[in-house]
Amino acid sequence: MTEGNFVDYVKVGLTSGKGGKGSVHLHREKFITKGGPDGGDGGRGGHVIVRGNENLWTLINFKYTKHFKAGHGEHGSKSRSTGADGQDVYLDVPLGTVVKDFETKEILFEITEHGEEKILLKGGMGGRGNWHFRTATNQTPRYAQPGMDGLEGEFLLELKVLADVGLVGFPNAGKSTLLSVITSAKPKIADYEFTTLKPNLGIVEYRDFKSFVMADIPGIIEGAAEGKGLGHYFLRHIERNANLLFLIAADSKDISKEYEILLDELRRYNPELLDKERLICISKSDMLDDELMDEMREELNKDLNGTPFMFISSVAQMGIVELKDKLWEMLNA
């Protein structure tokens, strides 16, 4: 998937259908000149329904079509015939989509399962026909109910990427390179900050035809929790990853400090993120010799408070197999 095709935030305008009118009709047939009322009910207006689809990874379907209207209910007719219901409108969204009210920003619901359906706007009820209004003193009512109007509103659709492993790190830490090596994904890679502006997803193939999903999240900068830089636009994706893989470059001035900054940004955005399983990878480790690696290992054992870590190099394919083993172990713990 190219970066331009990844759409994770859209505003849509929606309108449900109006209910059909009830019928005003008096029964007439041969030899029955004064039959009673037999007007049928109007059909209900169409609903606007949000439906989960596991085959979608983006909200690009709503990038150019942002207004949707459900069908109106048909009017009732004679012989107590009920009008047809209006046609429902289905909005197919990827799993992990959050629906919010545009005005209040209130979260209405989330779609997390394939085939899950939520009625966002109900269609208007159909009006009752005059058959319902007959009484002993008014045996031929010549009135019926009109259909109720549909509802309309503006809503936000936000996608939070669902993945088994989320890559977390500063810009240019090597996340995209690792994703390109460990999966079949082809993210944009270059030697400057914020190469990745949208999350990239890849399938990691493991032994015995097993697999799991890894997401490369755009790089964190200090102040991201307050919206600085890409801010909330990428932090929300981290919420939906089962495990977090922190990537810190071996040439960093202070690996432990960088890790603490990353943790602090996650903590300020959502403290629950710290409950996820974590693994630290020291990337670009092919530039380290054995002696330096041993020294760093000794320091990190003291500074990281028991958080597991390992040395890898995506370019040199160093530690990649061991990384897959460790991630699979974490996912199935």
Rank of each mutant, 00 (worst) to 15 (best):
S283H: 09
L59V: 07
G319F: 07
A249I: 02
G306D: 08
G219Q: 03
S184A: 13
L178M: 00
T137V: 07
M125N: 15
A333R: 15
S211K: 15
E329L: 01
W131D: 03
K284H: 14
G169P: 02
Y206H: 05
T196G: 05
L91Y: 15
K175W: 02
W131I: 00
E205S: 04
M318A: 12
V165K: 05
G19Y: 09
D149R: 15
D251F: 12
D164K: 07
Y64F: 10
D251C: 10
E103S: 15
E329F: 07
T58C: 08
L288A: 07
E260F: 00
G166M: 02
N53A: 13
M125P: 14
L108C: 07
N138S: 02
V315D: 11
E110K: 15
L262F: 05
K302T: 05
E226H: 14
S285H: 12
F62M: 04
S77W: 12
G219M: 04
R268H: 13
N301E: 11
G96S: 00
K302G: 03
S313V: 06
F246R: 03
S81R: 15
G231K: 06
G13H: 07
V7P: 05
C281D: 03
G229P: 08
G223Q: 02
D264R: 10
G174S: 08
V93S: 08
N243E: 09
N241W: 01
N138G: 05
F212L: 05
M330Q: 11
L279T: 07
G126W: 01
N301Y: 10
D208V: 04
F31W: 14
G19M: 10
R278Q: 08
L95Q: 06
I60D: 14
A173T: 03
V204S: 02
T15H: 10
G4F: 10
K30A: 10
N53Y: 15
Y259N: 02
L56P: 11
I280F: 07
G115V: 09
K100F: 14
K160W: 02
V24Q: 00
D254S: 09
G124S: 12
W131M: 03
P171W: 06
D88Q: 12
E258D: 11
I248Q: 03
L14P: 01
S16E: 06
E277Q: 07
R207E: 14
G115P: 10
T140L: 02
K302H: 11
E272P: 08
G83C: 04
V12N: 00
L197T: 12
G13A: 05
L274D: 06
E265R: 04
G166A: 01
N5E: 06
